[in-house]
Design a protein around this nucleic acid. Structure first.
Lengths: 189, 189
DNA sequence: CCGGCATGTTAATAAAAATTGACAGCAAGG
DNA sequence: CCTTGCTGTCAATTTTTATTAACATGCCGG
């Protein structure tokens, strides 16, 4: 029942593994076979329902193949990087809401995210609140944004900007995915 | 009874953890307290008698503190590094015989090691053999070196050079630690 | 429509790691 | 000498992870 991914670590092991596995074009079962583990183990890891031992993780990565160094280095892309291909964005979360980050917040004070909300996706009943300033532009779909006591439905081309200390919440009330490009400073997630 | 450190990975998680812990000036118990784990767990990990889950390892490193990225990045020092401080040498083994390597063999064909043999330490009854050429100079203490059917006791200032395909063995028959600076090409350990 | 075959997920069990609570070694100070 | 406090290690138990063997879903061809 525990959520092993919590910890504000900016590093979600499950999401990261799923990302590199899919990037390698492998199914859970196929990777499992190559790695010498079971598909169930990979499923549990990717959903953060278990935290693999380092030796297990090494076996799994050998099946991709990828080194432990490279796997954990994804947490910290190069310091002075300027250009990022789409596949270089760092996944911070996936599922109903997915966040993919540009660059490494260790070396920057501005966080740019590619966000995708599935229909019905919601940042949650408990409103978000953090000491930053954030804004963004809706690219596809629609999103219902609540900030303090104000609420609005934004469509493609609409934008927002507010002080993140105000309680806020994103909810996709539409029928298709909603894509947003957002920025936050200082970085939050 | 399994030796989790095997795997020719050039990366001994237990040795590495012990190294960074001692570098931080912490005892197993003190680190355990800061990390919120038990000293026994740290002992087992450092001796490669258990392979920590990633979440456990993260907790331990938080107590140092050190990030997972940095911990695993030690496996891969910078590619074009020229100068190394003593504390930058990469520990490959510790205990009765300790090996500390200069730089990263991923990018070099010459392996330089700082070796230390405790009194009685021995590379083992089964002779070493590998496809390299190796040599070294004794800095402190004495070492009994057997190569093929020849055997000699080398003292500080003495040196050796031979083809590693010949079976060989190092044994400290003295009463104090023996320190050797060695080189091997292509890299072996 | 169905059957076949792929996907990812999940409950029960086996295996492995973490904790608890010891133990032995060592150095400093009575 | 003994005590005190530190170090690291280890066996037995608890807790967590990995495997086994299901199950549900989705897609494609008949």
């Amino acid at each position: 029942m525990s959520d092993l991914s919590s910890g504000k670590d900016n590093f979600d092991l499950g999401v990261r593994l799923r990302y590199v596995r899919q990037n390698a074009g492998l199914s859970q079962r196929e990777l499992a076979k190559r790695a010498g583990v079971t598909n169930a183990a990979i499923s549990l890891i990717e959903n953060n329902q278990s935290s693999p031992s380092v030796s297990s993780l090494k076996k799994v990565l050998d099946g991709i193949p990828m080194s432990l160094t490279d796997f954990f280095a994804l947490e910290t892309p190069e310091e002075n990087r300027v250009f990022f291909s789409a596949s270089d964005l760092v996944p911070l979360a996936s599922g109903d809401v997915s966040f993919r980050q540009v660059g490494d917040m260790r070396h920057h004070n501005l966080q740019i995210l590619h966000e995708r909300y599935a229909p019905g996706a919601d940042t949650g009943r408990t409103m978000l609140q953090h000491d930053s300033e954030e804004g963004g532009v809706v690219i596809e779909g629609e999103i219902e944004l609540t900030v303090g006591d104000r609420k609005s439905i934004l469509k493609a081309g609409d934008a927002y900007l507010f002080d993140s200390r105000q309680p806020h919440r994103f909810r996709n009330v539409g029928k298709v995915d909603c894509v947003i490009i957002s920025a936050c400073t200082p970085p939050y997630l």
